[in-house]
């Protein structure tokens, strides 16, 4: 799919970078951030956010340049990670920026919430069941003398 702000090739590169920020979990329960489709969400956000468009654009340019003619996809995961760290040195703030954006989107996604053992929904309006308070826990405290200081009016 061609996005308004990134062509297919750049979108695929961004997805690969996001999969590096949050890769699929080793047990296969949690998808990578790119696999989750977050590149499309970020690209859509770039249309209305000049700072984001500039940062991601500069970051992708740098990654393409550093990857050389074979491209980012040809590198193994550890080489990709090194390359992204290098890109972060040359485009200061690139990784923290991407990480912040990716974390906020990734951990709102229902598929991720389910993988974390949470209900795939916002907290309201259903909420969560909890056991009522167990007063027996307080037995040691109930046996204590008063803790507050007496003032001149009795209590």
């Amino acid at each position: 799919m061609t996005n308004q702000t990134l062509n297919d090739e750049r979108l695929q590169l961004l997805a690969s970078v996001l999969d590096l920020v949050i890769p699929p979990s080793p047990d296969g329960n949690k998808p990578g951030a790119g696999e989750l489709g977050l590149a499309n969400q970020l690209a859509a956000g770039m249309a209305g956010d000049a700072m984001m468009a500039a940062m991601i654009g500069a970051g992708l340019d740098k990654i393409e340049q550093l990857a050389g003619p074979d491209g980012f996809a040809a590198l193994d995961p550890s080489q990709r990670q090194s390359l992204l760290e290098k890109a972060n040195e040359e485009v200061p703030g690139l990784v923290p920026f991407l990480t912040f954006r990716v974390y906020t989107l990734y951990y709102q996604d229902n598929r991720v919430l389910e993988a974390l053992g949470l209900a795939p929904r916002p907290p309201h309006p259903v909420g969560y069941e909890m056991e009522p308070f167990d007063e027996s826990l307080l037995a040691p405290v109930r046996g204590r003398a008063k803790l507050y200081r007496t003032t001149e009016r009795g209590e």
């Binding site: 890769p23 979990s25 080793p26 995961p77 912040f100 974390y103 906020t104 990734y106 709102q108």
Partner: peptide, 21 residues
């Protein structure tokens, strides 16, 4: 879940990359 990630990012307790999960 979001706050865990962002808090861990600011304290350095949650990594990006291979060790993230």
């Amino acid at each position: 879940p979001v706050f865990t990630a962002l808090s861990g990012m600011s304290t350095g307790d949650v990594d990006w990359g291979a060790d993230h999960h």
